[in-house]
């Protein structure tokens, strides 16, 4: 971005921020709110700006949907719908708040709606998810947990209730802060840690039980 700095003789030069300082301030703001320029452009009808927004946050949005819905096809469908709704209502979005959290909250609510509608999960959905989750690119790259361990962790994870899965996915998988999670879920930040402990304890018990069975 080009900055035109007009100096005024009435003010000492030291009081006027230099163009470098202004550029630095703008760069800091862009770093803090990387979505802002694209959101403004998308609001004016620039679809490639919106595509850039989609590309930048599609993975966590799809990831959360998949962990909540446990079906790749439904997760993809719901994540697309969340982005579409975000686009349709961009004028209501406050660009000072993180764009990814806003879309995340929309996606989460769509997932919960679908879960409410869904009478009960079909067994083939679990099988589909087992094949999908460990195949993530990052997991393969890191290779930190071997396939068997990861499968048993994902398997135990998928048996947890929705409210436990969402809090674990947001905190551990997506590395969100408790404040961000509280904003997405719509609860007080102080309750998130307790939810995490409860969910982790359920997961530990589930894993212990499955180890005993095997």
């Amino acid at each position: 971005m080009r900055i035109n700095c007009v100096t005024n003789a009435a003010f000492p030069a030291s009081l006027i921020p230099s163009s470098l300082a202004i550029q630095s301030m703008l760069a800091d703001e862009a770093k803090a709110q990387p979505w802002k320029a694209d959101v403004i452009a998308a609001r004016r009808g620039n679809q490639s700006a919106f595509a850039s927004l989609v590309r930048s946050i599609q993975r966590p949005i799809f990831g959360l949907c998949l962990r909540l819905l446990r079906s790749e096809s439904e997760a993809s469908e719901v994540a697309q719908e969340a982005f579409l709704r975000a686009y349709q209502h961009l004028n209501r979005y406050d660009e000072n708040k993180p764009f990814d959290l806003w879309v995340m909250a929309i996606a989460r609510n769509l997932c919960l709606d679908l879960l409410r509608r869904r009478a009960r999960m079909k067994s083939e959905d679990v099988d589909e998810m087992r094949d999908t989750l460990p195949s993530s690119e990052k997991s393969q790259e890191e290779g930190a947990i071997d396939r068997e361990e990861r499968l048993s962790l994902e398997s135990a994870f998928s048996t947890l209730p929705t409210e436990d899965r969402e809090v674990l996915a947001l905190y551990y998988v997506q590395k969100r802060t408790t404040k961000e999670i509280a904003e997405v879920i719509g609860v007080a930040p102080g309750t998130i840690m307790a939810r995490l402990f409860r969910a982790r304890e359920k997961l530990r018990k589930q894993m212990t039980a499955s180890k005993e069975v095997s």
Partner: peptide, 13 residues
């Protein structure tokens, strides 16, 4: 368990 959970990643869309 925390260590293992932190190593999980979001799947690619």
């Amino acid at each position: 368990l925390e260590k293992d959970l932190f190593r999980l990643a979001d799947p690619l869309p």
